[in-house]
């Protein structure tokens, strides 16, 4: 049993390390203006929204909730589905802007 716990801890550490380095694969487009970055996030969110949401349930359109409610729901969904932050932010941007 101790061995299993050790394996579990090692897996967690490996996952955390992978997260730290893996996160670097997505680079912020610093050379874009804020408006351009927002548009880019919107497009990315529009692409990811049906994919991430439909993984578990039917994707719900942005008009179903207010922007503040989407803030909370996306925080909740980040926990439920362990969404990566860039993708969660892009989906949030899309849902809030597509109302």
């Amino acid at each position: 049993m101790k061995r299993k716990i050790k394996i579990g801890i090692a897996a967690a550490v490996a996952a955390a390390a992978l997260a730290a380095f893996g996160g670097g694969t997505v680079r912020a487009a610093n050379d874009l203006t804020p408006a351009q970055q927002k548009r880019q996030m919107f497009r990315r969110g529009a692409e990811l929204w049906p994919i991430y949401c439909n993984t578990c349930h039917n994707a719900r359109p942005g008009g179903e909730f207010s922007p503040t409610e989407w803030n909370m729901i996306l925080m909740h969904m980040r926990t439920q589905a362990n969404l990566p932050p860039q993708d969660a932010n892009a989906i949030l941007e899309y849902l809030k802007a597509s109302r």
Binding site: G23, V26, R44, P84
Partner: peptide, 8 residues
Amino acid sequence: GGFQWGEM
């Protein structure tokens, strides 16, 4: 937590 490791 979650993270991206490859393509989008």
